Amino acid sequence: MRIIVTGADGQLGRELVMLPGLWKMGVQMLGFGRSGLDVTSLQSCREAVKRYQADAVIHCAAYTNVDKAESDADAAFRINAEGTRNIALAAREFGAKLVYISTDYVFEGTAFEPYKESDETKPRTVYGKSKLVGEQEALAVGGKVFIVRTSWVYGKYGRNFVHTIRDLARERKEFQVVADQIGSPTYTRDLAEFLIQLVQTDGYGIYHATGSGACSWHQFAQAILFESGLTDVKLVPCTTADFPRLAQRPAYSVLDHGEIRRRGLKELRHWRAALAAYAVDIGGEKQ
């Protein structure tokens, strides 16, 4: 199976391209970074899918700066919405499957129980709105489309919350972490393996794929320090109001994995187990 990955220089895209054992899964992966494929150009998308005779496209390329998007809406929609439409059109034209990576930000973030795939979407940020329009564009174009919403992604490649906490812990003996936002950390390795599993099926539709379980950012940070052997650092819980941001953060964005269970697919492991595995993968076990 020949799979094109857009956004291959990002966290998830690079994880997909670098995933070990792809040949055992019968998969040949071809990654395109920002300079290799302009998703805002329909012609560029068509040429890539046609030239490499792709069986599937995993569309990771996105405008992901949540705060900057508030003042740069045109760019966010051009990449996340129009770019997705171009990829979807190219995939449909040449009979390729499309996996569009979406986000928990498509929801309002005020729930008290995990969001189901069928729940009403009500994004409160430009980023969330642009990603939701991307979902709608992909589905409207038609063809063989998977929508995969995820959240709190971290991995070996690129900057993320785990790297930030580890760096802060080496610089300070005490710092604050938000404790009133609840979500599900997702290791890119687990998500990438799920996407490879999913794209080899014909179960098209919307999926929620995150690490199992839930925690606050403060609890996540505590676990990161434990796995990194940095337990002499004091984490002080604080509120979202203590750290105002340009874009509103979801207070609760846990996603229910109902469609994964219904299709008999393998769920991502618990976020705590994934974090422990990540620490080993990067050589960051207790030291």
Rank of each mutant, 00 (worst) to 15 (best):
S130Q: 05
G183F: 13
A277Y: 05
I182T: 13
K122E: 11
E93K: 11
R2N: 15
V66C: 02
I224Q: 09
A247Q: 08
Q176V: 04
E285W: 10
T84C: 13
T188V: 10
K97C: 10
A223F: 09
F161K: 03
S151W: 05
Y127S: 08
K266Y: 02
A192N: 06
P244E: 13
L37D: 08
D119C: 08
V178C: 13
I58W: 07
L139N: 02
I182C: 02
K286A: 12
A169I: 05
Y252L: 08
V199M: 01
T201W: 06
E113G: 01
A179V: 01
A169N: 03
D232P: 00
K234C: 11
V145R: 05
G134T: 03
S184Y: 07
T186Q: 06
A276Q: 15
K24E: 14
P185M: 09
G95L: 12
P185E: 07
T6E: 09
V141F: 06
L246M: 13
L168P: 00
N86W: 03
H59D: 05
Y204R: 01
F107G: 03
T188R: 00
R51K: 15
F77T: 11
A140L: 11
G211K: 03
G158V: 09
R124W: 00
G213V: 04
T103A: 01
A214T: 04
V233A: 10
E135D: 13
G158L: 07
V5M: 06
N160T: 02
G31T: 10
L168Q: 07
E285G: 01
F194P: 06
A277W: 04
F243E: 10
R14N: 12
L16W: 05
G109D: 03
H59N: 10
G258M: 06
W217C: 11
A111Y: 12
H208L: 13
E47I: 11
K50T: 00
D74M: 06
A169Y: 03
Q200S: 14
R172P: 00
R263T: 06
I224Y: 07
I58N: 04
T6C: 10
D232A: 06
V27S: 00
Y187G: 03
R92W: 01
A192V: 04
F94G: 01
Y154W: 07
Y127L: 12
A276K: 15
V145S: 07
Q200K: 15
S184D: 09
V199P: 01
G183M: 08
K116M: 13
V141I: 14
E259W: 10
T110A: 13
F243G: 00
F146A: 06
R189S: 12
D167K: 14
Q200P: 04
F226A: 12
A251H: 14
S44M: 02
E267P: 14
G26T: 10
E193A: 14
E15Q: 15
R78P: 00
K131Y: 07
G258P: 05
D232K: 11
D104I: 09
A75Q: 12
V177W: 05
P185N: 09
F146T: 07
V148E: 04
Y63P: 00
K50P: 00
L132M: 11
A279V: 05
Q176F: 13
Y100A: 05
G229N: 06
P185T: 08
K68Y: 11
